[in-house]
């Protein structure tokens, strides 16, 4: 009985914690080059970006309208839908880390 109560109590705490959504396909690889905010590096951070701006950039890399060194080659491996899912997830991570 006591153990069950304890289990419920712990589960309650777990349930109350913000749970980050599962990363969509390809999303976790971005952090290999793009650092979190606050580090002054030549490769820009993706933190703080709106999903719309990331999707637009990826489209521009894919079409070649925006010159790039590697992102043109990488963007071609992702559809608009996949890019949108990644961009939304990156934004949701910003949101989660902004919470106290």
């Amino acid at each position: 009985m006591r153990r069950e109560l304890l289990l419920l109590a712990v589960l309650g705490v777990v349930a109350a914690m913000p749970v980050a959504a599962e990363a969509p396909a390809g999303a976790t690889a971005c952090a290999g080059c793009h650092a979190p905010a606050g580090r002054d590096l030549p490769v820009p951070t993706l933190s703080g970006r709106t999903p719309e701006s990331i999707v637009a950039d990826m489209q521009a890399f894919r079409s070649g309208s925006r010159p790039a060194t590697v992102m043109d080659r990488i963007a071609k491996g992702f559809s608009d839908g996949e890019t949108r899912a990644i961009a939304n997830w990156l934004a949701s991570k910003d949101h989660a880390s902004a919470k106290p």
Binding site: A25, G26, A29, C33, I74, G77, F78
Partner: peptide, 9 residues
Amino acid sequence: PAEPKLINT
């Protein structure tokens, strides 16, 4: 497990 996509640079 979800079907992944991976990148190498």
